[in-house]
Amino acid sequence: MAAGGDHGSPDSYRSPLASRYASPEMCFVFSDRYKFRTWRQLWLWLAEAEQTLGLPITDEQIQEMKSNLENIDFKMAAEEEKRLRHDVMAHVHTFGHCCPKAAGIIHLGATSCYVGDNTDLIILRNALDLLLPKLARVISRLADFAKERASLPTLGFTHFQPAQLTTVGKRCCLWIQDLCMDLQNLKRVRDDLRFRGVKGTTGTQASFLQLFEGDDHKVEQLDKMVTEKAGFKRAFIITGQTYTRKVDIEVLSVLASLGASVHKICTDIRLLANLKEMEEPFEKQQIGSSAMPYKRNPMRSERCCSLARHLMTLVMDPLQTASVQWFERTLDDSANRRICLAEAFLTADTILNTLQNISEGLVVYPKVIERRIRQELPFMATENIIMAMVKAGGSRQDCHEKIRVLSQQAASVVKQEGGDNDLIERIQVDAYFSPIHSQLDHLLDPSSFTGRASQQVQRFLEEEVYPLLKPYESVMKVKAELCL
């Protein structure tokens, strides 16, 4: 049975990233139509530049190519590739079939990587351009969430054990800070992308030097003109047959890092959902379990974690691919890159769409948070109580021993009897502590235990987050809708 299948058929496997999760716009960027249309555009740009620099290419040939950029006979191309065992030459023939007058000058002087690699770089750039505003929107939604809850005390956790208090907004800023680093890295790697350009079979530009009869300047002009037509500021000066596969490492490393950030955020949300302090959106008709109707599973956060793990592992592909590119190139890269580049971007696209949807509907339960604080705060307040007693004339050592005994009794009630923490009640009825009984409410005010959390939130948002989001103001209103 021949390899390949009808990918629109229910009898043929289709990647869930495309069929179930990723956005239509990201799927289109990695589609065959987008790819092969870009090949034709690159052939047109090459012909236009070659004509401008004096090669015998007519206006009629150029116009014929322009008129057929979208006229792609995919069936013919597939048949040609089956016959020739070469995808680029299959599309040269297919393009030439609908451009008979231009057929002889299509791909003039070029090698397969002229269309293959340059198209990949265009796709990487455009895919990054799709991700950047999506990530900015996630940051914006979380920034709104953090600002609104900047002063809401909550129990902090280290080692997932109760620690000092923080605020809900401050905790959210930990998430935002990681995503801001990801946004900066995505922008950097996007701006650092260079075009492969017009380089020939081993990167020496020998074929173009021959076409222009040894004119170095025209060869350099050709490279520059096509690079500018493709919208790049610069091209690699040095290439082998391909652009260095280190570029793929750079791009997928940034995406993998984004995956790590999203995994951490969504894990926190899942843990908070278990504590009943916070939940992701839950639709009115949504079913959490087929057997347990009360369940409210954090399905979206779980999906993000599941896909983020996949995204983090994909960076190993370009690392290994770059390491086995012998001399000017081997074909070890080809099949692998067809999979890992598309999957990385479709996965990143999915987790950003999902995280935006989550961040637009996060639900906080202040009463649950308050109750958990009441359970733990008495123990945390013991040092403040000791200091207040010393100020009232008591002995630190005597007070410490009193607190120690009462704390152990209260802990026994919590752990052995399943009761509430009654340390404060014990202190309130103990005559030894009568000098500070009137101060206990103040000493137990949760806001006095959150330090500068709310001020940190305000400063972080104003100095770091809002300036970073400013270039994306025009796209901030787009909502994230999930079908599944």
Score class of each variant (00 low, 15 high):
235 A>V: 13
61 Q>T: 07
347 T>I: 11
117 D>E: 05
424 I>T: 12
450 T>S: 05
285 Q>T: 13
475 V>Q: 13
410 A>G: 07
76 M>T: 14
39 W>K: 00
342 A>R: 09
36 F>G: 12
472 Y>F: 15
246 K>Y: 02
350 T>H: 10
413 V>W: 11
435 P>W: 05
123 I>V: 12
6 D>N: 09
253 S>M: 14
296 R>W: 07
315 V>S: 09
367 K>H: 08
452 R>F: 07
425 E>D: 13
454 S>D: 13
112 S>W: 00
242 T>N: 15
348 A>V: 13
200 G>E: 01
267 T>H: 08
320 Q>T: 11
160 F>M: 06
6 D>S: 11
473 E>A: 13
20 R>A: 00
476 M>T: 15
208 F>G: 06
419 G>V: 07
302 E>T: 04
320 Q>W: 09
321 T>K: 00
287 I>Q: 04
219 V>K: 04
55 L>E: 11
61 Q>D: 14
167 T>W: 02
82 K>M: 10
176 I>P: 01
248 D>H: 04
286 Q>C: 00
79 E>Y: 15
352 L>W: 03
165 L>G: 00
332 D>M: 02
111 T>G: 02
482 L>T: 15
202 T>V: 07
419 G>R: 13
14 R>K: 15
451 G>P: 05
371 R>L: 02
68 N>A: 09
21 Y>T: 00
340 C>F: 14
268 D>T: 09
397 Q>S: 10
393 G>V: 06
66 K>D: 07
46 L>R: 01
6 D>A: 11
170 K>T: 01
285 Q>R: 13
19 S>R: 14
5 G>V: 08
284 K>C: 14
412 S>I: 13
376 E>R: 03
21 Y>D: 00
381 A>M: 09
274 N>V: 08
173 C>K: 00
234 R>F: 07
448 S>Q: 15
132 L>H: 15
142 L>C: 10
68 N>W: 07
309 R>A: 05
93 H>E: 12
84 L>F: 07
82 K>Q: 11
352 L>C: 07
203 G>E: 00
219 V>L: 14
362 L>Q: 07
345 F>Q: 04
13 Y>I: 10
417 E>C: 09
130 L>S: 12
291 A>F: 04
414 V>I: 13
140 S>R: 12
237 I>P: 06
264 K>D: 04
240 G>N: 15
480 A>F: 15
257 S>C: 09
388 A>N: 02
295 K>A: 03
483 C>N: 15
334 S>Q: 05
148 E>M: 10
462 E>Y: 10
311 L>M: 13
23 S>T: 08
25 E>A: 14
52 T>E: 09
186 L>D: 01
283 E>Y: 05
182 D>H: 00
65 M>G: 05
73 D>T: 10
80 E>P: 03
393 G>N: 07
301 S>D: 08
450 T>N: 04
459 R>V: 08
107 H>M: 06
193 L>S: 06
467 P>A: 10
293 P>F: 02
332 D>A: 00
401 E>D: 10
481 E>F: 07
423 L>N: 04
425 E>S: 11
161 Q>G: 01
257 S>M: 08
419 G>C: 09
309 R>K: 07
459 R>E: 10
164 Q>W: 00
468 L>N: 15
246 K>D: 00
204 T>M: 05
276 K>D: 08
431 A>D: 10
348 A>H: 03
265 I>L: 15
107 H>W: 01
433 F>T: 06
305 C>W: 03
282 F>I: 13
148 E>G: 11
398 D>Y: 13
458 Q>I: 13
358 I>V: 10
19 S>Y: 11
72 I>P: 07
347 T>V: 08
180 C>R: 05
185 N>C: 13
108 L>T: 10
172 C>G: 09
91 H>R: 05
269 I>A: 03
328 E>G: 05
140 S>G: 12
187 K>A: 15
437 H>R: 08
332 D>T: 00
243 Y>S: 15
32 D>K: 10
409 Q>P: 03
114 Y>C: 08
271 L>G: 05
275 L>C: 08
129 D>G: 13
79 E>S: 11
164 Q>Y: 04
154 T>E: 06
239 T>M: 04
221 Q>W: 15
483 C>P: 15
185 N>H: 09
412 S>W: 12
93 H>R: 12
180 C>T: 14
405 V>W: 14
31 S>K: 06
439 Q>R: 07
19 S>G: 13
136 A>E: 09
311 L>Y: 01
471 P>R: 15
25 E>C: 07
333 D>K: 04
138 V>C: 08
70 E>A: 10
226 V>W: 02
182 D>S: 04
484 L>S: 15
57 I>A: 04
156 G>A: 10
186 L>S: 11
346 L>P: 05
291 A>S: 04
271 L>T: 05
263 H>P: 02
273 A>G: 13
375 Q>P: 04
334 S>K: 03
94 T>M: 14
413 V>D: 06
323 S>D: 01
451 G>D: 03
228 E>A: 09
35 K>R: 13
223 D>W: 00
187 K>W: 09
48 E>G: 05
395 S>L: 07
178 D>F: 01
407 S>I: 01
133 P>W: 14
92 V>P: 00
410 A>E: 03
7 H>T: 14
355 L>M: 12
348 A>P: 03
